[in-house]
Amino acid sequence: MPFPTPELAHVVYRTKRLQEMLDWYAHVFGGEIVYRNDALVFVTYGEAHHRFAFADLNVIAPEASDAEHNPVGVDHVAYDVPDLATLLASYRELKDKGIEPYWCVNHGMSASLYYADPDGNQMEFSVDCFGSAQECIDYFRSGVLNRNPVGVEFDPEEWLVELELGVKPEELFRIDDTAPVSPIRGRLERIAG
């Protein structure tokens, strides 16, 4: 199995009833907001840095109907892997089988590979960029997401080579603010303003 024992990390929802969703998840899970801007909200409970994220379709795609490109519901389900070496070894194994991610992004608190199954269901496999969930929460609360709410894309082939050459994961995780803006990041930056 390419991703040995991946653990469920978080679920991202698209919604047109953001406040109702936040209230519901606060009541049911005791959720606490760790980051919020006009378009995105990250919520945690327990020991994780975030368990849920909500994308407000009223901000992101106000003109879209539920039947169009951005319907309400689950956007993607995320799974944690133990370390960067495992994430990249799994990437290589899946690529050898013709399965490649559609998006590779370093979010700052985690680095992720996004895949879609044959039906188009989206999933994220990620590794934390810090040694503890609290450090990830501190990253959320630091304000850096106000400048860059999604992160920067990376090339897993380049990271594989660098890791094999002995570059430490902490160095690869460092976000370069001069990196090209990803299309998804760019759209959210315009919204978050």
Rank of each mutant, 00 (worst) to 15 (best):
L172D: 14
A116H: 10
L160E: 13
R14E: 07
L188S: 07
E20W: 08
E162Q: 15
E93Q: 01
A111E: 06
R147A: 15
G98V: 01
H50M: 09
S90L: 04
N146G: 13
L113H: 02
L8T: 11
A48Q: 15
C136E: 00
G108P: 00
L188P: 00
I60N: 07
F125H: 10
N70H: 14
E7D: 13
T15D: 03
Q122A: 12
Y13M: 09
G143A: 12
S142A: 08
E170N: 13
M123I: 10
K95S: 11
A61Q: 07
P180W: 13
E63C: 00
L87D: 10
R141M: 10
V77E: 06
S132F: 06
V105W: 04
L113Q: 02
F130W: 06
V81R: 02
L145K: 08
I184P: 00
T86H: 00
H107P: 01
N148P: 00
E158C: 01
V41I: 08
Y79P: 04
D128I: 01
K16D: 09
W159R: 01
P180Y: 14
N37S: 15
R92C: 00
D83P: 00
H49T: 03
I33H: 05
A133T: 05
D38E: 00
H69G: 02
S126N: 12
S126Q: 14
R36N: 05
G30W: 06
W159P: 00
Y35F: 14
E124N: 01
T86P: 07
G143H: 11
N70Y: 15
R187F: 14
K97H: 11
V12C: 05
Y25S: 02
G120S: 03
L84A: 05
R36T: 08
R147V: 02
G120W: 06
P2T: 11
Y79T: 02
E170R: 14
T15M: 04
V11S: 10
I184K: 07
A89I: 06
V77C: 13
L113W: 11
D56N: 14
F173L: 03
N106D: 00
A55W: 07
E162A: 15
E63D: 14
T44D: 07
G193E: 14
E32H: 07
R36D: 09
E164F: 05
A67Q: 09
G31F: 06
F125Q: 01
V152S: 09
V11W: 03
M109E: 13
A111G: 05
L40C: 03
V28I: 13
D155G: 03
G98P: 04
P6D: 06
F42M: 08
E68D: 14
E47F: 04
K95I: 02
T5P: 00
F54I: 03
A133I: 01
V150D: 01
N146T: 04
E7S: 08
N146E: 11
E20R: 12
A9I: 00
P118N: 03
V150A: 14
Y102E: 09
H49Q: 12
E63I: 04
I137E: 06
G151K: 01
L172H: 12
A133R: 06
R185Q: 15
Y114R: 07
S65R: 12
V12A: 11
D176W: 09
